[in-house]
């Protein structure tokens, strides 16, 4: 067998493996989407049917007419977008600094950044809530944003990528050429970080998109809900309207997948940019 044929066979086997893994990972979601098309009676069937016997669009109809689902998605989108911009901007610069400027003060700041990630936001959000309230920012995207301006893991992610893929020599060479520190960051470092920054954008966007504990206390009006808070509305005191909830979640998956596919293109293209460095 020629090397080429062998490579092709290996690739085929790898594709099959990946397909199987992806299908396994997607099974719970396939069931979720199927549930969106079920009647309340069929919802009760146990074990659940993977394909609805008597598919109905009733749930989707109800979700879109009885709840402001599109408004919620729009609120979430705006919040996620602004949060992403803030997080990418702060993380890019701070991540580069903590990665390439190993001064003691900077290291201490980095440890502080990381330590704040250990305590879950739900546990310490009350003092922040009182601040947002005092600023009159309840029920506004600005108030939501206060909790999502920075991300420890974002700074950490950029730091690790700076360490892994930006050689010190490159920075030294630029300094010897007389370049200013800001110039180096903007024209040398940033282009090399396109891939990691795009990945960070994905993570930041979805962190805000799926946020729950903070939006639920800051946004108390149905009109200003984010999507995840809106979804919680399908739970009554003791039961969950699972068919409606599933339909709504399935509908929400559409923009999620779209957003991921769009952002993903950016970090695939990141290869071209980072390829320049050798």
């Amino acid at each position: 067998m020629s090397a080429k044929a062998r490579a092709r066979r290996t690739n085929f086997l790898l594709d099959v493996t990946l397909f199987v893994i992806c299908i396994l990972l997607l099974t719970p979601l396939i069931l979720l989407i199927a549930n969106g098309f079920k009647t309340p009676q069929e919802m009760l069937v146990w074990p659940p049917t993977l394909f609805p016997k008597d598919p109905t669009l009733e749930n989707f109809h109800k979700v879109f007419t009885e709840t402001p689902l599109l408004q919620w998605m729009l609120n979430s989108f705006l919040f996620a977008l602004l949060s992403t911009v803030a997080i990418v901007a702060t993380s890019a610069l701070a991540g580069y600094i903590v990665g390439k400027f190993p001064f003691r003060a900077i290291n201490i700041i980095f440890i502080l950044f990381l330590a704040t990630a250990i305590i879950p936001f739900e546990v310490y959000m009350i003092p922040l809530y009182f601040q947002v309230k005092a600023l009159g920012l309840l029920n506004s995207v600005g108030g939501l944003l206060v909790g999502y301006l920075v991300m420890s893991f974002g700074i950490f992610l950029i730091r690790q990528n700076v360490i892994a893929s930006i050689p010190d020599e490159l920075l030294e060479a630029a300094r010897i050429d007389g370049a200013g520190e800001l110039w180096i960051f903007w024209y040398v470092v940033l282009p090399l970080l396109r891939g990691p920054l795009a990945a960070l954008a994905v993570l930041a966007f979805f962190q805000a998109w799926t946020a729950f504990a903070w939006p639920i206390i800051v946004m108390t009006r149905k009109k200003s809900f984010t999507i995840e808070v809106g979804l919680a509305n399908f739970q009554s005191a003791y039961t969950v309207d699972l068919s409606l909830l599933s339909a709504a979640s399935a509908a929400v998956m559409v923009p999620s997948v779209l957003a991921f596919v769009l952002l993903r293109r950016n970090f695939v293209e990141g290869i071209a940019a980072s390829g320049m460095k050798e």
Binding site: L26, L29, S249, V252, F260
Partner: peptide
Amino acid sequence: SRFSGFYETAVFIPHVVSLVPAAMAWKWI
């Protein structure tokens, strides 16, 4: 591969789906 987009998306999506409706599938599993 022409499927690379599918692979990445399929692996990533579970990270962003709401847990309550997805949990039903897990309870069945």
